[in-house]
Design a protein around this nucleic acid. Structure first.
Length: 307
RNA sequence: GGUGCCUUGGAUGAGUGGCUUAGUCAACGGUCUGCAAAACCGUCUACAGCAGUUCGAAUCUGCUAGGCACCU
């Protein structure tokens, strides 16, 4: 069995992008992003796009799935998978192995574990019918469609409505199935100790504030509603709250920093869970130099081909 | 030098002579196939130290230490 994808994952601020770009440059391939926020145009500093990192030795490494949606748009997992496949096929057509790089666990997992998702458009009649029902009623209704094997679907009424919509869709279109290529990924995780992770997150945040992150968000607020920006979380949430006067600058900085640390922890939790669900991750030491990391990845590539 | 007040888990902060934990935040662990940088769940048992009163004290008394306020 040969690999047809290299995945580089890790928590925020672990240096994924740089390693992925350098590796892509060296082996002449392209990058497919797996980041639920970097898809948005104009959300650059806050999402840590680091677009400059895609220029290696003066050459632009092609990347995909970044800057593909307007801020305020509600992108979802189905769309990600659809867009991923399109980009994947484009790169594969060049007969190279793409590098999937990002930190959005759900997006990564939808590729690595080949979730089968159908396009489920909104169903206005159903939504109108469900309007005003309590979460309890919606949960009971969802239970008539399927066994409730998680609680994420019924966290909020909004999610429960969507879950029912999807269940209703599958009831009406039971055989619809999307073709999904056999993905066999060499999956690399960048492992950074808690202390180092925290240091990097904190200093990176300071840098981004200096680079104009707050102005970026002020600009976005001229065309995106505050609540939509707040929904995006982290930088967009706390800086928006600061800009509209709900937080002082100090409160914003303190709370944001804590929130990013918590986010990084949740990312690691996700990756561990993903391993339990059967995704094999080769962890490499994130404290090493980029060159060492790339050597290690290349060594893994050679020695594990055919495992 | 004198008088009074305070001292609770990593932080903050309520409370009562004994019965089950305050709460909040942080930290840590987890959940997860459709907004995931979201949403949600779990864990963390402390009352400054010593001596005494009491069947029983973190809660009462005394001393010691630290802090705060006021007085000469």
């Amino acid at each position: 069995m040969t690999y047809n994808l290299i995945t580089i994952l890790g928590p925020t601020a672990c240096g994924k992008t740089r390693v992925a770009a350098k590796l892509a440059h060296r082996i002449g391939t392209e990058i497919l992003s797996a980041d639920s926020r970097q898809i948005y145009r104009g959300m650059d500093i806050g999402t840590g796009k680091d677009l400059a990192d895609y220029v290696v030795e003066g050459r632009q490494v092609p990347y995909h799935l970044i800057d593909i949606a307007e801020p305020g748009y509600k992108y979802n997992l189905y769309e990600y998978q659809r867009d991923f496949l399109e980009a994947y096929n484009i790169v594969r057509a060049r007969d190279v192995v793409p590098i999937l790089c990002g930190g959005t666990g759900l997006y990564l997992e939808s590729v690595l574990r080949a979730y089968r998702l159908d396009e489920v458009p909104q169903n206005p009649e159903l939504r109108a019918h469900l309007e005003g029902k309590s979460l309890e009623e919606l949960t009971a209704l969802l239970a008539t469609y399927k066994t409730l094997h998680n609680t994420t679907d019924v966290d909020t009424a909004q999610r429960a409505v969507r879950a029912i919509e999807i269940a209703e869709h599958y009831r009406q279109h039971p055989v619809a199935k999307r073709a999904f290529p056999e993905i066999c990924s060499l999956t690399i995780g960048l492992d950074v100790s808690r202390e180092l992770r925290r240091d990097r997150i904190s200093s990176r945040l300071r840098n981004r504030v200096e680079e104009g992150m707050i102005d970026e968000i002020r600009g976005l607020l001229t065309k995106v509603k505050p609540e939509d920006l707040i929904y995006y979380g982290l930088e967009y949430k706390f800086v928006t709250q600061y800009v509209i006067g709900e937080l002082t600058k100090d409160e914003m900085l303190t709370q944001l920093e804590i929130a990013i640390h918590q986010f990084a922890k949740r990312q690691m939790t996700w990756f561990r869970g993903m391993e339990r669900r059967g995704v094999h991750i080769h962890w490499i030491d994130g404290a090493k130099s980029d060159e060492k990391k790339i050597e290690e990845i290349e060594r893994l590539w050679k020695t594990t081909v055919g495992e």
